[in-house]
């Protein structure tokens, strides 16, 4: 995987320079909340053993996906 400068962008927030991963953690939060609402509405959480554990795993997967897409060369 080739690192890209657009991924490792240092975000500035009112004088604080935040680590690049933080912005991607925020980006991954959006699909996570959406998916969680969908799973909740459709009742698919019936097929999940530990809901919190599953949610954590889902979030990490989405974060990995966001970072992977963020480093794609076309960005």
């Amino acid at each position: 995987m080739t690192p890209s400068l657009s991924f490792f962008h240092t975000v500035e927030l009112v004088g604080f320079y935040l680590p690049p991963l933080l912005i991607w953690a925020l980006v991954a939060l959006v699909p996570f909340l959406l998916l969680r609402a969908i799973l909740d509405r459709s009742g698919l959480y019936r097929f999940v053993w530990h809901r919190s554990l599953f949610n954590l795993a889902l979030y990490v997967l989405l974060l990995g996906g966001a970072v992977f897409l963020g480093n794609a060369q076309w960005l």
């Binding site: 999940v48 053993w49 530990h50 599953f54 990490v60 997967l61 974060l63 990995g64």
Partner: peptide
């Protein structure tokens, strides 16, 4: 229920390691 959670956790562990 057990399998779905297990697969999700294992996949998340691998992705987390890569990340």
């Amino acid at each position: 229920r057990f399998l779905v959670t297990l697969i999700a956790v294992v996949a998340a562990a691998l992705v987390g390691w890569w990340l």
